[in-house]
């Protein structure tokens, strides 16, 4: 579904990604792990063309996107949940939910989304900024489920949330995986990510330095500890 080859990305003059290579197959959940500043968020942003200059190759469903403008990339069926959640303060909860255009058929109907996140239904007319952190995070994920995107880029969704909410996010991701969504997660919280993912990529200094599959997790734990400092 996604094949990234020798991806370099820049912010202005600074060279952040130094040749990232990875692939994600349909229906897989993979994580990008690493320390702060390693280039995980930049990798997600580079997939969408949100960084400065990029080079290399990003194939999405067999289409090369490295030269595509950002607003075309989403229409290949990609949904993005940014690290800062990106809830629009000037829009109501419902307007936030309805904002992203449909990028493919088969998106989750709004009634189902409200069934899944009753809090959002209750607060549909409140301004986006009045929501709690957990509600904002739910909204940020819900609004990309509505669009029919099948490849989800989720940046630090567990960050700063209470443990019960993190648990329900874990159930949500598992449910999405069962439905066949393909998910790339950037995660700081290894304990949250480990049971969910099929594969982990460890990024350091803008490169993938280690790939750990689910089965290798135990045997490579020491190596991960060292790389992540967890």
């Amino acid at each position: 579904m996604l094949r990234v080859t020798d991806l370099h990305a820049f912010y202005g003059e600074s060279h952040i990604l130094h040749g990232i290579d990875f692939t994600v197959n349909r229906g897989e959940v993979v994580t990008l792990l690493g320390r702060n500043g390693a280039g995980r968020t930049t990798t997600l942003r580079a997939l969408l063309g949100l960084t400065g200059k990029r080079s290399g190759s990003i194939m999405v469903n067999g289409r090369e996107t490295i030269a595509m403008p950002t607003h075309h990339i989403a229409h290949l069926g990609i949904g993005y949940c940014p690290e800062e959640r990106g809830i629009f303060a000037g829009l109501t909860t419902e307007e936030n939910l309805m904002l992203p255009p449909e990028v493919a058929s088969g998106g989750m109907p709004v009634t189902e989304i409200y069934g899944m996140f009753p809090n959002l239904a209750e607060r549909r007319n409140s301004p986006g900024m009045r929501l709690s952190g957990g509600e904002q995070q739910m909204l940020a994920i819900a609004r990309i489920l509505r669009t029919g995107a099948r490849l989800l880029l989720l940046d630090e969704i567990s960050e700063g949330l209470a443990p019960v909410i993190v648990q329900s996010l874990g159930r949500l991701i598992r449910g999405l995986k069962e439905r066949g969504y393909t998910i790339i997660m950037v995660e700081q919280n290894f304990r949250f990510a480990a049971p969910l993912a099929d594969r982990h990529y460890v990024i350091e200094h803008g490169r993938i330095v280690e790939t750990v599959t689910k089965n290798e997790l135990e045997s490579k734990m020491d190596c991960l500890h060292e790389l992540l400092g967890v």
Binding site: I73, A74, Y80, L99, P100, T147
Partner: peptide
């Protein structure tokens, strides 16, 4: 409010 994210939504 956030042109880049808006564009990332397509």
């Amino acid at each position: 409010e956030n042109p880049k994210l808006t564009q990332a939504f397509g």
